[in-house]
Design a protein around this nucleic acid. Structure first.
Lengths: 180, 180
DNA sequence: GCAGACATGTAAGCGGTTACATGATTCC
DNA sequence: GGAATCATGTAACCGCTTACATGTCTGC
């Protein structure tokens, strides 16, 4: 049982999904490839932490709709109470930025502008997700007892992180362009 | 040549270091274990991107002091100009927080307080590093042409990130403690 | 006609973690 | 007496990425 297995349990606990669906829903929690997700789903099923229902579709390939079992929710519940591993960030940009003194300022400016472009796009994507939640009359993101609450907080958190990154890039660009 | 190899080149380009030293200096760029660093140093040496000098010590084990070669700096310089891979964050806390609705609010509060404690400690550590730079009369972190510039910006960036995390935890704790 | 979404999987290989091995000195 | 620091490495294993395999429908 690794982190990804628990992330999968967390998603499946909210609503039954296919492995393919999981690939998208995990985006907010723990980025993973489908080639990683499918074997883990099989193992979770073996351990009876999830079970699936075969959905036959026309015009589309058949799919497996996964549900959590009571055993699965229980396992997740106890795991949450353990102290989490420390976060790890793998950001190539940081390595490149660290060594910009070896190049001229144009390279730094390009690096920063490229990063801004990426974070702007990501921010837009997550803003749309938030909008969907806010416009859905069946969802109240402020109700602390429901699962929407934490998802809403993580979505808005992401947008804030992206804003942080955009602001930082602007700050550094201003410093670089300053003539002194 | 993976990201870590370039991170190592980036550190060695600033000042000659031992593999053991690298373990600490990489903290700001790309966290790595010594068991990963030593084999990469050997490969970089084989490729003539770095070379080393044996330093015999008394009372301490002997060490290898690594230097970049011209070939190494050149390799790093060209790599910086390529578009960096997108950042990856692996944060177990996020998975746990996502599923707090399965538990009671005390678990969430514990999770957030634990996170605050960790980030406070990290912030203190990096604040000390910044202080060292600011108090060193031989270092001018505002000089854009020198390598201190980018290191200073990455250090202060880190402190800002930790402050962001601390603020976010406080925001969520306030929401949870609100009686409505 | 071709890219992309939908859908599930396997296999090879790379990157990173943990454990093992060795050994002196310093600090509590 | 034990933990931490300094110092270099190897080996096993786990996690993740990339490539491969297969097939239909939709939209450009």
């Amino acid at each position: 049982m690794n982190s990804l297995a628990y992330a999968i349990l967390g998603v499946v606990s909210r609503t039954p999904v296919s492995g393919y669906d999981l690939g998208k829903r995990l985006e907010l929690l723990w980025a993973a490839n489908l080639s990683q997700i499918y074997p883990i789903l099989s193992k979770l099923e073996e351990k009876e932490l999830v079970r699936y229902e075969l959905i036959e579709q026309i015009g589309k390939p058949n799919k497996k709709k996964y549900y959590v079992t009571e055993k699965g929710t229980q396992k997740l519940r106890t795991w949450i109470q353990e102290i989490p591993a420390e976060p790890i960030i793998r950001d190539e940009f940081i390595i490149k930025f660290y060594s910009i003194w070896l190049t001229d300022s144009e390279v730094a400016i390009q690096l920063l502008n490229n990063r801004k472009k990426i974070y702007l796009k990501k921010q837009q994507h997550f803003s749309e997700e938030v909008k969907k939640m806010e416009e859905d009359p069946t969802i109240d993101p402020t109700d602390k007892t429901l699962n929407h609450f934490s998802r809403y907080l993580l979505l808005t958190r992401r947008i804030r992180i992206f804003q942080f990154e955009l602001d930082w890039c602007d700050d550094v660009l201003r410093l670089i362009n300053q003539h002194n």
